[in-house]
Design a protein around this nucleic acid. Structure first.
Length: 308
DNA sequence: CACGCGTGGTA
DNA sequence: TTACCAAGCGT
């Protein structure tokens, strides 16, 4: 079966490389006509602006990112501007985007950029990957979107598009695999500028048309080549995807605690934090976790604040 | 590699 | 309403 899989990949690769993939032209054309106008796609957007958008968009929808993004860049137009402020200010400005450790990592990344790269967001993929909070996806995204380089930019949207169009299944695997990455690399246009356009375009297709729940196949530019559609759009048959409960979790408790601290510019006395969560052991665990993560700073006399 | 990590919108 | 989903990362 390894043989078969290998042969299949060779076949896919061969198809994709003849005159570019038959997917490229329709997707690129569709993108030109249908792409959303987003501030980080403005040709004038700096690499730092692209980087900020990528951090915020990690698991947070575009609509909620937009206002925070605008405020953030107005306040900190360069990495040096952010690096000069205490990390707690980044956490506060992060507002309710969720996963506030991203704010801490963006702040740390800004400091690293100042220290190691003279205050300029690096264009080299390996340099990007070495920054806090920058993983495989984000490094490729910044290199591609901000610097026009040729990288496989593999996010959940792209994984879904490729799973359907090329593999012929309703949903990609639950977690990213090496196979996804290989497929995305094989699907990449050969020349740099086209590859960069393909990266945004294929992602946008996944966000607007090839959506997770109710794909709008009638409007899809590649429905005639889509392996999943051609197979009759078979339903998902893999293992059940575990849903994230939130009510009553440590996550929710952490969120409550941090919300109080974000709202206060002065140190908060412990009793005020205690009022946010009834279950004492869980509350203490959550608070300890926040301190351990560097999101909260304990002070003498039972007071707490965002890290200075 | 599976898990923990926020928050809110939608079907 | 509950459940799923949203441009992932670090451990």
């Amino acid at each position: 079966m390894e043989q078969a899989a290998h042969a299949w990949h060779l076949k896919i690769g061969a198809v994709l490389h003849q005159s570019g993939s038959p997917l490229h032209a329709p997707v690129l054309q569709w993108y030109d006509a249908n792409a959303r106008v987003l501030p980080w796609r403005d040709p004038a957007a700096s690499p730092w602006a692209v980087m900020v958008s990528e951090f915020m968009l990690q698991q947070t929808p575009v609509a909620r990112v937009l206002p925070a993004y605008e405020r953030w860049l107005e306040r900190w137009p360069t990495p040096a501007d952010l690096a000069a402020e205490p990390p707690g200010e980044a956490v506060r400005a992060w507002d309710r985007l969720g996963y506030p450790r991203r704010a801490l990592r963006l702040h740390a990344a800004a400091q690293a950029i100042v220290e190691r790269h003279g205050g300029e967001v690096p264009s080299d993929h390996a340099d990007l990957l070495a920054l806090p909070g920058v993983g495989t996806y984000t490094a490729a995204a910044i290199a591609s979107f901000a610097f026009g380089q040729r990288h496989a930019v593999v996010d959940t949207n792209v994984r879904r598009v490729l799973a359907r169009a090329l593999t012929g299944v309703a949903q990609p695997t639950i977690s990213p695999t090496a196979a996804d990455q290989r497929l995305a690399v094989a699907a990449l246009p050969a020349d740099e500028p086209t590859a960069a356009r393909w990266a945004v375009a294929s992602m946008e297709l996944g966000a607007l048309i090839c959506t997770a729940r109710t794909p709008r196949c009638a409007d899809c530019p590649i429905r005639r080549q889509c392996a999943w559609v051609l197979a009759g759009s078979p339903p998902y048959d893999g293992p059940p995807r575990r849903g994230q409960t939130y009510e009553g979790t440590d996550r929710q408790a952490r969120g409550r605690l941090l919300a109080v601290l974000r709202a206060s510019t002065t140190p908060v006395p412990k009793p005020q934090l205690d009022a946010t969560w009834p279950d004492a052991p869980q509350r203490e665990r959550a608070l300890d976790g926040l301190v351990a993560d560097g999101l909260v700073e304990p002070l003498p006399h039972n007071h707490y604040r965002l890290p200075a």
